Amino acid sequence: MKTKLRVLKVGGNLIDDPKKLRSFLNAFAKLPQPKILVHGGGKIATETSKKLGIESRLIDGRRITSAEEIQVITMVYAGLINKNMVASLQALACDAIGLSGADGNTILATIRPKKPIDFGLVGDVEAINSALIQKLLKADLTPVFCAVSHNNKGQLLNTNADSVASEIAIAMSFFYEVELFYCFEKQGVLENVEDENAVIATIDTAKYETLKAAGTIKGGMLPKVQNCFHALNNNVSKVIIGGPEVLNETHKQFTTLKL
C-alpha cells in the first residue's frame, strides 16, 4: 500500500491576506509528512507590475506574460512570496525548501504555441523531475514550489500554478497515493458567486460541462477545474477545492471533483 502524499496549492486572496495566510500555513505545517505546497501570487504580481508601469492582461484566467513581466513574476513568485512562505514554515517547525522549476530541473516546460493566442513567456509543463522531489521528501523536507518553470534553454517561464500542482501530483502518483487540494478564499466552487454558502458539494465531468455552459464556472476557475479533472484522469486519488478549513478533516464544506 502506497504512503499518502498531500499536494496543496494555495492562491487567491489567501496569499494577499497575511492573517489568513498565517492560519493556512499553521494548519499546513501540522499536516504529517510527506507533503508539497504550490503557490500562486497573481494579484501581488499585477500590483507590482502596475507600480512599474507594466500593463497586465489575462484571458480566461491566464496571464499574458511579456519579457518585462517575467522579471516581475520571478521577483514576486520565486522571491518575495516563496521565501516568506518558507521562512514562515521554518518558524512553525516545518523544514521547507523553496523551489522554482529551474531548481534541480524540477519543472521543465515549453513555451505555449503562439496560436490561437500569443501568451508570451508562458510555459506548459513538459516534465516533472519526480525522482529529485522524491529525494527531498525522503529527507523529510517539504518542497514549496512557485509557479515559475524553465525551458532548459536558459529561459524562465510563467506557468499556471494550478497546472503546476496538478502535474506534480500526477508525477508523484508513481510513488504515493496522492491527494490534491486547491485552497483559496472561498469554501469551494459556488453555484452563486453572491452567496458564500452556495457551495457545490460534488462536480463530475457531466456537471462541469453544464456549469461551464451556464457561465457558473468561468475566469480563473476554468483552468482550476480543468486541472482537477486532468489529475483525476491520471492516477491522482482525490481532488478537492475549498478554503483553508479543508485541512481540518472534520470540516465538511468544500467541493469534491469526481470522474
Results as ranks from 00 to 15, higher is better:
residue 258 K to V: 14
residue 232 L to P: 04
residue 180 L to P: 04
residue 149 S to K: 04
residue 138 K to E: 15
residue 34 P to H: 07
residue 195 D to A: 13
residue 227 N to D: 10
residue 235 N to G: 07
residue 234 N to Q: 15
residue 5 L to N: 09
residue 63 R to N: 02
residue 66 S to F: 05
residue 49 S to N: 13
residue 182 Y to A: 01
residue 222 L to E: 10
residue 19 K to M: 06
residue 239 V to A: 08
residue 203 I to P: 02
residue 210 T to A: 15
residue 45 A to Y: 06
residue 36 I to D: 10
residue 255 T to E: 02
residue 146 C to F: 03
residue 108 L to F: 11
residue 196 E to F: 06
residue 110 T to S: 15
residue 39 H to S: 08
residue 79 G to A: 08
residue 103 D to M: 06
residue 227 N to L: 01
residue 124 D to W: 00
residue 70 I to K: 10
residue 187 Q to S: 13
residue 117 I to F: 07
residue 182 Y to T: 00
residue 223 P to D: 07
residue 246 V to S: 05
residue 177 E to P: 05
residue 53 G to R: 12
residue 109 A to I: 09
residue 234 N to T: 09
residue 257 L to D: 00
residue 13 N to S: 14
residue 80 L to P: 00
residue 30 K to A: 15
residue 47 E to D: 15
residue 158 N to Y: 03
residue 215 G to D: 10
residue 130 S to C: 04
residue 258 K to P: 02
residue 211 L to A: 09
residue 102 A to W: 12
residue 171 A to F: 04
residue 191 E to Y: 08
residue 10 V to W: 01
residue 50 K to V: 04
residue 242 G to W: 00
residue 36 I to T: 09
residue 190 L to I: 03
residue 174 F to K: 14
residue 166 S to I: 01
residue 220 G to W: 08
residue 213 A to Y: 01
residue 4 K to L: 13
residue 218 K to W: 00
residue 79 G to W: 04
residue 46 T to Q: 11
residue 258 K to W: 01
residue 251 H to K: 10
residue 126 E to M: 07
residue 223 P to K: 08
residue 53 G to L: 12
residue 250 T to S: 15
residue 256 T to Q: 13
residue 194 E to R: 13
residue 259 L to F: 06
residue 97 I to G: 11
residue 71 Q to N: 08
residue 135 K to N: 12
